[in-house]
Design a protein around this nucleic acid. Sequence first.
DNA 1: CGGACAACCTGGCGGC
DNA 2: TGCCGCCAGGTTGTCC
Length: 275
Amino acid sequence: MPELPEVETVVRGIRAQLEGRQVQAAHYTWANTLHSPSPEQLTARIVGQRFERIYRRAKYIVCALDQDLLVIHLRMTGRLYVCANDAENEADRWLRFWVQLDNQQQLRFSDSRKFGRVWLVNDLTQATGQLGVEPLSDDFDAATFYAQLRTRPKMIKPLLLEQGFVVGIGNIYADEALHRAQIHPMRAANTLTEDEAHRLHATIRAALTDGIARQGASIGWYRTAEGSKGEMQDHFFAYDRTGEPCYTCGTPIVKMWVAQRGTHYCPTCQTLESK
DNA sequence: CGGACAACCTGGCGGC
DNA sequence: TGCCGCCAGGTTGTCC
């Protein structure tokens, strides 16, 4: 579900409700949701800690507490929201973990497919491993991007999905960025021209920025922290538009499989030759 | 390193 | 209506 724009939207939605709050207790209903330390240790160690700062790194939600970092990854179907102790939320049906705050409110983590994970660590990399550059930061520059593409013979789409290369891009925004840049998803990365690399650099940023502005894409499970749907799904160029006309040339969008992921592209605008 | 594939899981949807 | 197979926004590990 959630890629960079969806995670960013969730972070913005819970930030004000969490900052300054102190943890009174924590509970879980699915042990595998709590990755490390052990569920018993995590729910004990977090008690008494105060939320100081909430931010996003890649697709991870990071809550800086006064002692540790509470790190959450939504994976496919995770939802994170803050509500009153006695409030009922439609996502509570799949509640896996929750934190009792000191103001009669709770931070709840719901996740129907149980792929989501929670960590309590001192060092962020203990949860995330080594991550690539943030595509919306100044560290992501076109010249470096082009230079790195030159070293990779791998297909461009799965390369964009590698979180150790560039973070935050998932299946939706990979298809959207490649379509906007008019690059075929199966092009070998090291065959992109400088112009193509620069176009892709720009469209990655544009697609992600548009996604944030639209509060993310709600194809299925994703909801904002407030429980509403995003609107980016109504503004896709390629993703989930199989058979519908390309906005540029009218050719029907085709769905194929690339690296075991459904991939949507325009066979006229996105060819295996440079353009 | 690149690529294929299985695992981890549940639920929604289309087809019959 | 009921059942079945397929598909899903992510990540990790194994094998060739």
